[in-house]
Nucleic acid binder design. Structure first.
Lengths: 146, 146
DNA sequence: TAAAAATAATTAACTAGTTAACTAATGAGG
DNA sequence: CCTCATTAGTTAACTAGTTAATTATTTTTA
């Protein structure tokens, strides 16, 4: 395997392995990692329409729609229809979710630290920079093909 | 977002964006990216049982089973039962697949280069090293929790 | 202002992976 | 040799995402 192939290989293996590690830790909270991602986004930018949320998370609207359905059922988010435009739905975390958030963040944060251990702050910044560059390139590739 | 969170964020975004870029390029060949991953593995290590393949790819056996079913239907792989142990199935690429392989590799390789552009060989090696470390840490996390 | 185009969200059908439960064949111990 | 545990592969049911088609509203435009 050449270098480029090796990068791709570990990129996929790593993300899968990380997801597989997070899910059992979130299980006691009754959350899945994809739902957690939605919660984080809503914590950072409170009250968005679903379209804004999809754009912000760079995920297609149907995926958001399904996750929100689950989260609503569990009582962690609320959806209220827009007043000016009745098609859109404004999404926000419930009080209950805000109360639980620190506990969830603790569990996930712990796991994050374990995954990143033996990488200095400086190395992590370097890694983030490389990944950001790859992401930008990959996004350009997508547009080019379309 | 702190550095650790940023790393995780781009890790997920990047892998999704790359898959989204590869699929339309492989579409003319009638292959999906997951099927391509199986083909690459079989090209590297010809003739494995499905269990060996699953271990080699670090993917659960049911996922392999499904991909192989599709690939067999398309005529790219063959499965023949073991002689010593009739439970196991030995998997191998067909002649047709071996003939098409260079074309497929060309398409995927081109995309890989686009995604990795503006990263020197040395930077790519560095990135691979970081990702490998993360992967090893993540695998340890999994075991610890089980 | 009525018809046509655009937009927000959902549903349907798919790829890509997971765990849990099953079937069939093999291997070990009594 | 025969039961019992193990192992290889599959099926079922799920999460997590995708594209394409549908519905309901809003906006444009002729």
């Amino acid at each position: 395997m050449n270098t480029a192939e090796t990068v791709m290989h570990y990129l996929y293996q790593t993300t899968r392995s990380i997801t597989k590690g997070i899910n059992p830790r979130l299980e006691p909270s009754g959350l899945y990692s994809s739902e957690w991602a939605v919660i984080v986004a809503l914590k950072e930018r409170t009250k968005m329409t679903q379209a804004e949320l999809a754009l912000y998370m760079n995920i297609e609207p149907p995926a958001i729609s399904k996750s929100l359905g689950q989260l609503e059922k569990k009582g962690w988010i609320s959806r209220l229809p827009g007043e000016r435009d009745r098609r859109e739905k404004y999404v926000a975390l419930t009080e209950a979710a805000l109360a639980e958030y620190p506990k969830w963040e603790g569990v996930v944060g712990q796991h994050r630290q374990e995954v990143l251990q033996r990488l200095s702050e400086e190395e992590q910044r370097q890694l983030a920079k490389y990944l950001q560059l790859l992401f930008e390139n990959a996004e350009l590739c997508k547009e080019r093909k379309r």
